[in-house]
Design a protein around this nucleic acid. Structure first.
Lengths: 221, 221
DNA sequence: ACTTTTAAGTGACAATGTCACTTAACGTCT
DNA sequence: AGACGTTAAGTGACATTGTCACTTAAAAGT
């Protein structure tokens, strides 16, 4: 079956859970499609499903009182919503908000089924734990970057990870500020400096990398 | 038995795991004592036990290349080492370092026993997940504070949480900087300002709160 | 072709971090 | 008790980042 193969490809750890432990994920879960821009959870929400993202991307972020935001992480295909999972079990409040960045296809496993799988399948537990540990490590890395790394470095890193010399990045300075937990003006200034050095070319809603090596050199300490 | 009661008191979720699921934690685990100042893990270490802290406190932090540090969280009695747990399952590298702040008494559950418990006891799973979710939420809160909250607020908060008018805080400005992910000079300056306002009294290695309400007022937005 | 909306620029200033020191307080060893 | 080494804290100059109150410019809507 097509979907099964897709799932196994995206979540290799579930392979064993499906084949050996007799876990029939497709039968007990529901495939859902969520349009772009949908808030899938925010502070205080209660959660009823374990979500596996098959396609698309979800942005998870917090917002300060003054409106400033910082992206905590993205969930893309092959990822699961750890925060959701956490609340599934410990019934805590969400400390963040999740919004789909694109149309998202996901597999929703209802809470009771999730708990059954957790009890029955070692492989399933492994999958769940793995995404947990992963997220934890990424969050710690984020704390590290925010506290220690300079903005030009973080910005250059973002640019290199999301574009290249012939594939411009389509985003606004505001979105970039949110992504890096900074302020728009600061991003604008920094980008302008990059442009003055001939490393990027700026236009409304678009950033073109013109000198990959110079940006990469910034990262190399 | 004395220790059993202590454990049940510290880890209420394990109650059921012990009483109903026939989990004999004491039999299969080892009580260990770790002297103050011991590094219990650092980057790249491998982990062989699930650790439940019975007494004392562990400081978990990351270090930047330039030597600056930031405390990610503390594990005190009733806590378990989530990072350790994570690596127990996903075999990733530690992204941080853990050092005992005091003498620590802990219960070490060997990996195979841990996995057995995870398979057999819903209550045990709940306990493990709970500490995970907790940590995740605290880390997210930390990201939020670092990115959004001003230093005077965070400092005042720390002072109020760790001291009061008649119980001075015994720590150095350097330790405080590490705790808040800032620099010593910045902490010194800020404390000096508090002192000038008559809110605290400073001396070498000691901070006395002299005006609780003024500090508290800072937090109240 | 006009308004409206959204994106980006600007300058002044405040907060925080960095650097290269100096000064002060505390142990400890004759 | 006085000298010495160690650790804690202070200092001023400067760089980086964040904030505010705007202006300018580009795209979208009518």
């Amino acid at each position: 079956m097509e979907l099964t193969n897709t799932i196994l490809h995206l979540f290799p750890k579930l392979n064993e859970a499906i084949s050996k432990d007799g876990i029939n994920i497709l039968k007990h879960s529901q495939q859902i499609t969520i349009p772009e821009g949908t808030t899938i959870f925010h502070q205080g929400d209660q959660c009823l499903n374990y979500l596996l993202v098959i396609a698309g991307s979800v942005k998870v972020f917090t917002r300060a009182e003054n409106g400033r935001e910082i992206v905590l992480y993205h969930i893309s295909s092959g990822g699961s919503c750890v925060l959701t999972t956490s609340c599934l079990i410990s019934s805590e409040d969400y400390p963040a908000e999740g919004v789909t960045e694109t149309d998202v296809v996901a597999l929703a496993i209802p809470k009771p089924i999730f708990e059954q799988y957790m009890a029955e399948s070692k492989a399933f537990r492994k999958q769940v734990f793995h995404s947990y540990g992963d997220r934890l490590i990424k969050l710690i890395t984020l704390v590290e970057e925010i506290s220690f790394a300079k903005l030009d470095i973080r910005l250059a890193k973002y640019l290199l990870e999301n574009g290249s010399v012939n594939t411009p990045i389509r985003t606004t300075h505001q979105a970039l500020a949110t992504e890096l937990g900074s302020a728009r003006e600061v991003i604008s200034r920094q980008l302008k400096e990059f442009e003055n050095k001939g490393w990027v070319l700026l236009s409304r809603g678009k950033i073109e990398i013109t000198n990959h090596d110079a940006l990469a050199n910034l990262l190399a300490h």
